[in-house]
């Protein structure tokens, strides 16, 4: 378990975590990048701004 940087809720992590992996927070949906595994550290992943067209 670790905290989501966006909303502060608990983020459940699977055990064979890899640096660089993207995990989405199940509370706020934010995309988080694993920057360290022992202990697990998450940062906001650079999410590409979806182009809404028009």
């Amino acid at each position: 378990m670790t905290e989501c940087v966006e909303c502060g809720a608990e983020v459940s992590l699977h055990d064979d975590l890899e640096v660089g992996e993207i995990i989405d927070c199940t509370t706020c949906g934010a995309e988080l990048e694993v920057v360290d595994t022992e202990p697990p550290v998450l940062e906001r992943a650079p999410e590409l701004e979806e182009d809404w067209g028009e």
Binding site: E6, C7, G8, A9, D24, C25, T27, C28, G29, A30, E31, E47
Partner: peptide, 29 residues
Amino acid sequence: KGDLWQAYRGCYEDEPFVRMAAGGSGVYR
């Protein structure tokens, strides 16, 4: 944003019938 998340999680985290959807990824953001 932190204040907002604190307020909304504070009120709704344990509510069975309220789901948060504030940004994030996917089609239903």
